[in-house]
């Protein structure tokens, strides 16, 4: 694969970096990243990955764009209200960068489809941009069972957090958080509110982790939870332990099959 003149110009600020270069940019163009949820986190992650020239981007979301999404889900425009989010996301990416092949999955992830979606393009890295705990645990378990790296994140009010799982290189989400909280116990963005930029900051960190993983550069957030408090403008990295008896990634793991947990009713709302 050789670059066209347009590609050399488009990616020139990457290519000039010694950590990226022509070789790294080619890796990005050949890479495949799956983004589950094209909302507050997934929207900015998808846009930066598209701009960076990630060759294949998968978008999973069953929802349609609503007016209340536009305060933070910047991949969708006012004219997109009512459209499926994956279609709106695909259109924006196509306009941003013709090098990117967008694969859309207009569905919610469940135990029945998630492995098929991950295997559909044999994605290299997965970004969890979902807002609910059944999906977060499902993504974790699916990535552990299929040995795929992924980035977890959550945002609420003025807070955000993210961690990266790479098989064999640190704890998974379940190591730390065990089981989903009971439905309705933890407020969602819709109930609690979220500052629009939170997804931009945390989702862009998720995109950064995906790019670093593909390029094989730097230190990932494996074994570390990065927390961000926007009001105090405070970033902290919390070192996480490896949990030997984790039910999914531990030495004698009991979870061999995916689990569909029950979510709060508002989280399962389908348009």
């Amino acid at each position: 694969m050789s670059f066209t003149n347009d590609q050399l110009e488009r990616y020139s600020r990457h290519i000039i970096l010694k950590e990226v270069g022509v070789k790294g940019q080619k890796k990005l163009l050949k890479s495949k990243v799956l983004i589950i949820g094209t909302g507050g986190l997934g929207a900015p992650a998808a846009m930066f990955l598209a701009a960076a020239g990630v060759g294949t981007i998968g978008l999973v979301d069953s929802d349609n764009v609503e007016l209340s999404n536009l305060q933070r889900q910047i991949i969708h425009l006012t004219k997109d209200v009512g459209k499926p989010k994956v279609v709106s996301g695909q259109e924006t990416i196509n306009e941003m960068n013709p090098d990117v092949n967008v694969v859309t999955y207009q569905e919610w992830v469940s135990s029945a489809n998630i492995i098929g979606i991950i295997k559909d393009q044999d994605y290299d890295f997965i970004i969890d941009g979902t807002d609910n705990f059944p999906a977060k645990f499902l993504i974790n378990d699916a990535c552990v069972l299929t040995e795929k790296p992924f980035s977890h994140a959550g945002i609420i009010r003025f807070h955000g957090q993210t961690m990266t799982y790479v098989p064999g290189q640190g704890p998974c989400y379940r190591c730390i958080f065990k089981n989903p909280p009971p439905p309705d116990a933890v407020p969602t963005c819709k109930q609690a509110g979220v500052l629009g930029v939170m997804g931009g900051i945390i989702g862009t960190i998720q995109a950064t982790e995906a790019i670093k993983y593909v390029l094989g550069i730097g230190e990932l957030l494996t074994g570390q939870l990065l927390t961000y408090d926007a009001l105090d403008m405070d970033f902290r990295k919390i070192k996480l332990p490896l949990v030997k008896d984790c039910p999914v990634c531990g030495e004698s793991a009991k979870i061999k099959e995916l689990i569909d947990y029950e979510g709060a009713v508002c989280e399962l709302k389908q348009n």
Partner: peptide, 8 residues
């Protein structure tokens, strides 16, 4: 803390 957020 448990933190959701993201899509929706």
């Amino acid at each position: 803390y448990f933190m959701g957020g993201g899509a929706q």
